[in-house]
Design a binder for these strands. Structure first.
Lengths: 117, 117
DNA sequence: ACTTTAAGAAACAAAAAAGTGCGTACTTGT
DNA sequence: ACAAGTACGCACTTTTTTGTTTCTTAAAGT
């Protein structure tokens, strides 16, 4: 019941901004989501879902909610009855693109001289 | 026993190099490890461990082994009896630094206009 | 002599993340 | 009239990742 961890130290507090960044976008499906939104600019929920084949509603919704709360994606819904909702990157989300490109390039280089998983 | 997933499609195969990159460096302690090795250039096992306060032997060792196998860090050991082992980034590891800086910067910017977790 | 330090390893437990299956409410297509 | 599509939400279960404990060998410090 008593939390032991916080009595010791949290290795992440304040220290490393990358770790902080990864806590926001490091979940399994978040980077794919961001990647697709970066390319298509604006997508409906189910469009996005089809692009990311394999993701389930629960997981995708969770990702999107979190990204929305962190102001990385923007959700737009007209309140229409067969719902119509779109997602796009916010400015903050767009600022991530160069960093993602850096990782992409590195991953790409490494993939070529190793076997792809 | 029968694997169902590969009959459908694996959303990650070949598609996104960032996801591949994250599969190599996305574990909780890997980025901190890389970060410290980038700054100090060369560190003994226990030095590194002290820098990353909070990590345990098992976890740190696992990280280092994996990073080593992926040619991101280099382990150097003289076979001496009270062991002396150092770790440093390989060239491949060093190529990651710009990408990490990108994430760092983004994380840093975001931290300033939001509360740090 | 006994503890500390060096650099881990193996077995196991806990926590976190991801995934499953089904339900909702209303509309358009057949 | 009935199925299908839109955009999810809830309650779980499963899988994956992390962390804990204890152990090792041998030398140097107190």
């Amino acid at each position: 019941m008593a939390k032991k961890k916080s009595e010791f130290e949290n290795p992440y507090e304040e220290k490393c901004s990358i770790v902080y960044a990864m806590s926001l976008i490091g979940a399994k499906w978040k980077i794919p989501v961001l990647w697709h939104l970066a390319h298509y600019e604006i997508l409906h929920y189910n469009e996005l879902k089809r692009h990311l084949k394999g993701v389930t509603n629960t997981v995708l919704t969770r990702c999107l909610r979190e990204l929305e709360q962190d102001s990385i994606v923007l959700r737009k819904s007209d309140g229409s009855v067969p719902p119509s909702v779109t997602y796009e990157l916010t400015d903050l989300g767009k600022e991530l693109i160069p960093a993602l490109n850096g990782l992409y390039k590195w991953g790409d280089d490494h993939k070529t001289n190793a076997s792809k998983i």
